[in-house]
Design a protein around this nucleic acid. Structure first.
Lengths: 231, 231
DNA sequence: ACCTGAACACCGTTCAAGT
DNA sequence: ACCTGAACACCGTTCAAGT
């Protein structure tokens, strides 16, 4: 075919369309994580999808930890740039938190990546959003750190459990309801002397709504913030 | 030596003092995790300390996940049996949470193990303690699940970050202060247009007290619970 | 019933060698 | 400058073979 000649005559493209780059690696890593779960992200699998050897990736990314943080940040960055300027700072916090919840629900691996990179860019983005809202809420300066910290810990806690549930569900090959039902069954068979309360929670466990519960927790913390302001 | 003869004549001991058992495996696993961190728990290293082959462990434990949950449960079980019957349900929750915090602070790997086994025995113990206190707090039945859930998520969030910090600190080979200082330095160099708030938190980050912040978060949630009761 | 340890099928990471 | 891919030093897990 004359295609070869044409290529030869074309202006030397600075880079092949499908050449390696940090961004392309991150994009394919996200695809892989979404499709195969956390254990699916492998330098070999990634190299396969990128049509190179595993060593090539190390030219653009220092190690697996950095890769995971970068993929996590791609998702979190996308989510946080959806600017929130609602009717009140509390509404902003709720919107920010829900946006994050939905992103993590769609990409459960973000939950564990977020936890494993404390103080890194993904967490910084979240902290900034929370902090600005807390300023608008007139939280006094010396209360800002602990309040922001509590909100972040709570969000990370939910995110982590979300990731863990997804992981267990995947390895068991069952869907959410089947998984919850089997845990609920275990709970109802617990010793009734030692675990009366958890036994009674088998029903709620099966029927609960993760998203609504998450928001309820945010509201609990915001309620506490309001209570502290009042005195 | 005649020791061999004596052994032959002795009543056949049902088990060698140092023979394998689930409990012994769990004990040594805890030693290993405390000494070497999360990545130090290996079937080979464990077998080494137990003076057997890696295969032997599988007779007593199904897989690594079960082993980690069992070691986690050993610590959590110990912590939760320190019965709390303080002056008020709120005091009980605070005592329970602080007991857990201190245990996780002493054994950071418990944090990630806890997150990775949702609905399993370790989490059940915590839920039971929290739930009973919430009943005593007169939290109405339909609010018990989300409230308990929020408290657990917050605790797991702090626990997970604690584990992550310990892991990063270990791989970097730096102590807590050095680690915090380096993160704080990164924060103060962030873009001041995009991250004014996080920049201002570099100081608090360096000086904060994890334990006090943790308790402040618990109090925030309890404040929210109180606020909901009032109306 | 319980233990042994070689073997299997993977990992992340490195690095000489290529272009 | 960037890519290749074999090689290294590990993993968790299995399983025939032993006692």
């Amino acid at each position: 075919m004359s295609r070869w000649l044409m290529v030869k005559k074309a202006a030397p493209a600075p880079r092949r369309e499908d050449s390696l780059s940090r961004d392309r690696i991150v994009d394919v890593a996200i695809e892989l994580l979404d499709a195969e779960g956390e254990s699916g992200l492998t330098f070999r699998a990634l190299a396969g999808r990128l049509a190179t050897g595993p060593g090539a990736i190390y030219w653009h990314v220092a190690n697996k930890g950095e890769l995971l943080t970068a993929t996590c940040d791609a998702i979190v960055g996308r989510t946080m740039t959806i600017a929130v300027a609602g009717e009140s700072p509390e509404t902003d916090i709720r919107a920010l938190a829900l946006g994050l919840f939905d992103a993590i629900d769609a990409h459960p691996w973000v939950g564990s990546a977020l936890t494993r990179a404390p103080g890194q860019l993904p967490a910084v983005r979240i902290l900034e959003g929370l902090g600005q809202a807390l300023c608008a809420l007139d939280v006094p300066a010396e209360r800002q750190w602990p309040t922001m910290s509590a909100l972040l810990s709570y969000i990370l806690g939910v995110a982590g459990q979300n990731a863990a549930n997804a992981h267990v569900g995947r390895t068991l090959g069952t869907d959410r309801l089947a998984f919850l039902s089997s845990v609920a069954a275990t709970w109802s068979e617990l010793d009734e002397e030692a675990f009366p309360f958890v036994r009674s929670m088998a029903g709620p466990l099966r029927e609960h709504d993760d998203r609504a519960d998450f928001l309820a927790g945010i509201d609990l913390i915001l309620g506490g913030v309001r209570g502290q302001a009042t005195g």
